[in-house]
């Protein structure tokens, strides 16, 4: 390269290197081909299980789905055939909803605190570290934790399960919020301050709206994740066959717990119900995800070109 760029002065013009691809060397095209193959391969490897799982659950579960399945009580005699997952649908929505109501506002506030008020302080570092550790706590351990501090004193209830799910969601929401706030352009804050804005008002009126799409997306992903949790619910809500709309009293049940219980049975009735519950749960999570995408799109489209 350097020789062609600085030819000796009197020498005839050296041959200009061709711009055709082959002149770059065959090894480069080979590397490109290998990398492309690997990337496409990984994509296929990642998608195949997803398609298989969703497809199989649909094939096995679609026959169970009916209005009665979504609303009727769970048969008391677990080996009996026929519909009934109503209590689990209600329980899933109630418990996940309660967990969301507790964890999302707290988590968003925590993220705001971390990024806006204590980015460089010792307390901020400690909180951030603890949130990171909390992300890694196995969900069943979180269930045990709630069992020991809540259930032993106040008994099982949907609320106890919501507490466990909320504890699982909290660090995710905190971290997502912090990351999204970090992405807000410093120029936006500066121009708000340059207009005489104060800190709290600037965060509320400028920074949060700018970060809202990402925060909403992150929060709803945490919700979807929590809706599928089973382990922390096993000993915090127990199970029940009739719909329990009282979040704060008595055992409850969710789709995830019902999948776990029914799939363990040897009889075809409960197994069929487990497939139906699995499909219902996937559908609910899917709706949450769509909702999160839609909401973020609405937020961001509002102010883009």
């Amino acid at each position: 390269m350097s020789m062609t760029m600085t030819p000796p002065a009197p020498a005839p013009t050296p041959a200009r290197p061709s711009i055709r691809r082959s002149s770059a060397g065959p090894w480069r095209s080979a590397k490109s081909a290998i990398a492309s193959t690997l990337i496409v391969g990984s994509l296929v490897v990642a998608i195949v299980p997803l398609v298989l799982i969703v497809g199989y659950v649909i094939v096995r579960g679609i026959d169970s789905i009916s209005w009665a399945f979504l609303t009727d009580d769970i048969p008391i005699l677990s080996r009996s055939e026929g519909p009934g997952m109503g209590p689990a649908v209600v329980g899933t929505l109630l418990i996940t909803g309660a967990a969301t109501v507790m964890a999302v506002p707290l988590g968003v506030l925590g993220g705001i605190y971390l990024n806006e008020y204590s980015a460089r302080t010792a307390l901020g570092r400690v909180v951030r570290f603890l949130a990171e550790v909390m992300t890694g706590v196995p969900s069943i351990v979180m269930g045990l934790f709630i069992y020991s501090i809540w259930v032993l004193r106040f008994g099982v209830s949907g609320f106890a399960g919501a507490l466990a799910l909320g504890c699982l969601m909290l660090p995710v929401v905190i971290r997502t919020t912090e990351e999204m706030l970090k992405l807000v352009a410093p120029e936006l804050r500066e121009s708000a301050y340059a207009l005489g804005g104060r800190k709290a008002g600037t965060i509320l009126r400028v920074v949060l709206p700018a970060a809202a799409p990402g925060i909403v997306s992150g929060a709803l992903l945490a919700v979807a994740r929590a809706a599928g949790e089973t382990a922390p619910l096993l000993f915090t809500i127990l199970t029940v066959n009739a719909t329990n709309t009282n979040l704060f009293h008595g055992p409850n049940t969710t789709l995830s717990v019902q999948i776990f219980r029914n799939a363990q049975q040897v009889f075809p009735g409960p197994q069929q119900r487990a497939w139906g519950a699995a499909l219902t749960l996937i559908a609910i999570v899917f709706i949450f995800t769509l909702l999160s995408r839609g909401l973020s799109a609405v937020f961001s489209r509002k102010h883009r070109v």
Binding site: A185, E187, L188, E190, S191, A192, Y193, A194, G196, A210
Partner: peptide, 15 residues
């Protein structure tokens, strides 16, 4: 800052 306003190098309207 309310009395001494500032215009920045890059246009930076709010979203």
């Amino acid at each position: 800052r309310r009395r001494v306003g500032m215009v920045f190098q890059k246009p930076n309207p709010f979203p």
